[in-house]
Simulated scan of single mutants.
Amino acid sequence: MRPEDMLLDEETLFRDESVFTPSYIPTDFMHRDSQIREIVLSLKPGIRGYNPLNLLLCGPPATGKTTALKYVFREVRENTSKLITVYVNCEDSSTPYSIFAKIYEKVYGISPPSTGKPLEDIKWRIFTKLKRDDRSIVIALDELDRLFLNNYIAEILVDLLKSHSTHGYDRVGIIGVMISQDMIVELNEKTRSVFNPSRVFFQGYREDEIFDILENRVKHGFYPDVISKELLRLVSRKTFEGGDLRMGIDLLRKSALIAEHDSLRRIEKKHIEQAMKSLAYGRREELIRKISDDARNLLSIIERNNKLASGEIYEKFRNETNIGIKKYNQFIKELEFAGLISSIYEKGRGRKRRFILKI
């Protein structure tokens, strides 16, 4: 190894390591022009003093739904004060109070009073200030399926979208973000009629699109020549095969950290291979940590009995937990949305459903 290939203790391969973190919003958002356009169109009425249009962003994991939304919200905040944008991750805030607390923080710039104010008082304060300030508001509910699983979805949507009849304020729009739109049919008629969103679908990225996006991250996040085009194409191919753009971004970051640990100025193939092994395990642990305890228990049963059909899995689950079929199906959906399992239906009498472990 040549001395010039060695990295000194105080040196780094990263020009800006934040480029490889989940919170990073690119300045030049690629391969999502039509989706960005739909989001912008839905917000224009809010900027003009009316209610933004309701949207549902859906598509496979890691296809740019959340990043596109935050990209547009950033542009709105930088260019107008007439429309307040609120982003809520329902994985972290999944109750009516926690969601309205997030809205309160954006409207007032501070958290709600810690004096135990009831939810109705928080709502009244929010809508009163919005009317007084003559501003519209759009609330993005990311991981919307969480509200279906805990049965708060109807209450939250109606409280927000019927505010004109309860608080005399009618300039609210909602953008839901979820993997599949199938759960929308579970809404009752009243909630469907007030929500009634337009759909915006985010398809999986092609391999050449993944390469473009990762190349852009490399340009902004690494110093020149940290990774070769050949190895970047390898990362792009592995990312495409895995179907998860976040994996490719994490793979670049992890590979660079391993190269730094080896005191090298460039990422080598062995660093990528080592990073892939560690990320595969870490990704599974992260997903399992996020699901509910009952879903975790169900996953364990599926892993131990992965050759059994759904009905037989349910019997074992019921015997262990005394949980009924409706909740069982909700937990199956939770595991599917988390990307831990997928369902296949066998042709023939009865159309048996079986589960495939994805990670």
Rank of each mutant, 00 (worst) to 15 (best):
R2P: 07
P3K: 15
D5A: 13
E10D: 15
T12C: 06
L13D: 01
D16M: 09
E17H: 05
V19Y: 05
S23T: 13
I25M: 05
D28G: 06
D33Q: 13
S34H: 12
I36K: 12
I36W: 02
K44N: 07
P45G: 11
G46R: 01
G46S: 06
I47Y: 02
R48I: 08
N51V: 05
N54C: 05
P61R: 12
K65L: 08
K65Y: 06
T66V: 12
T66C: 11
T67L: 02
N79T: 15
N79H: 15
T80A: 06
T80G: 06
S81F: 12
K82N: 14
C90H: 00
D92K: 14
S94I: 08
S94T: 11
P96F: 08
Y97M: 09
I99R: 01
A101M: 06
Y108K: 13
G109N: 09
P112C: 07
P118G: 07
P118K: 08
K123P: 06
F127D: 03
K129R: 15
K131L: 14
D134I: 10
V138A: 06
E143I: 04
D145V: 05
R146W: 10
L147N: 02
N150H: 07
E155C: 09
I156V: 15
L157C: 07
L157T: 06
V158G: 02
D159L: 11
L161V: 11
T166E: 13
Y169R: 10
R171I: 01
R171C: 02
V172I: 13
V177Y: 03
M178N: 04
Q181D: 14
M183N: 11
E186K: 14
L187R: 05
N188D: 15
E189M: 11
E189Q: 13
V194P: 00
F195T: 04
R199G: 09
R199P: 04
R206D: 07
I210A: 01
N216F: 03
R217Q: 05
Y223Q: 07
P224T: 04
V226H: 00
S228Y: 00
S228A: 05
K229S: 13
L231Y: 10
S236T: 01
T239W: 02
M247F: 12
D250H: 12
L251A: 04
L252Y: 00
S255P: 07
E260H: 09
H261K: 13
S263G: 08
E268L: 04
H271N: 12
E273I: 10
E273T: 06
Y281R: 14
E285A: 13
E285N: 15
E286K: 15
L287C: 09
K290L: 06
D293K: 15
D293V: 14
D294E: 14
S300T: 10
I301D: 04
I302N: 01
S310Y: 00
E312N: 11
I313R: 01
I313Q: 01
Y314F: 15
Y314H: 11
K327H: 08
N329Q: 14
F331H: 05
L335K: 02
A338F: 02
L340P: 01
I344G: 04
R349S: 13
R349F: 14
R351V: 08
R351C: 05
R351Y: 10
R353L: 03
K358F: 03
